[in-house]
């Protein structure tokens, strides 16, 4: 092979390995399991360590919601289809947070089975889904 071909080949190898490394590092750093409360608590579930950082989705139970009026801490029960779990969230409470809405929490399972969350997101479903469609989706599930 000519000198030029070698040069091009070397450049390609370097670029491809740089991008692959970036992609690998990115996938490792950003990955979080995303599952429902039920799936997380299911006995046969954990392919991962129970104490790993996870993202859970569920509904805020209508009972037992204690939101600090200072707006920096909320304790509530995250409810799935059949299972539920207490959550202790520390951080700024989003405006749209209230009982009976779908939320996503991120954090780890702490001692005594209380989920210690540091991220709380509400799904702004009202934005894209009319009430009746939501009712349909709920009755279907």
């Amino acid at each position: 092979m000519s000198k030029k071909t070698w040069k091009v080949l070397a450049a390609v190898v370097i670029l491809v390995s740089a991008v692959s490394y970036l992609a690998y590092a990115a996938i490792q750093s950003g990955r979080t399991y995303y599952l429902s409360v039920d799936a997380f608590l299911a006995d046969d579930n954990p392919p991962m360590d129970r104490s790993a950082r996870v993202r859970l989705h569920g509904k805020v139970d209508s009972e037992g919601l204690q939101a600090d009026s200072g707006g920096l801490r909320a304790r509530f029960t995250l409810r799935g289809q059949s299972k539920h779990m207490p959550v202790d969230y520390r951080g700024a409470i989003p405006d749209s947070f209230k009982s009976d809405i779908e939320v996503v929490v991120e954090g780890r399972l702490g001692e005594a089975g209380v989920f210690q969350a540091d991220t709380l997101m509400t799904k702004c479903e009202s934005k894209y889904m009319p009430e009746s469609a939501r009712a349909k989706a709920e009755s279907a599930s």
């Binding site: 990115a26 750093s29 950003g30 990955r31 979080t32 399991y33 995303y34 579930n45 392919p47 991962m48």
Partner: peptide, 19 residues
């Protein structure tokens, strides 16, 4: 895997920002 995995902001910050 059985459990879906999401990628958070640090995925994009590591990959997209340098590019």
């Amino acid at each position: 895997t059985k459990t879906p995995i999401t990628q958070g902001p640090s995925f994009y910050n590591t990959l997209i920002v340098p590019m």
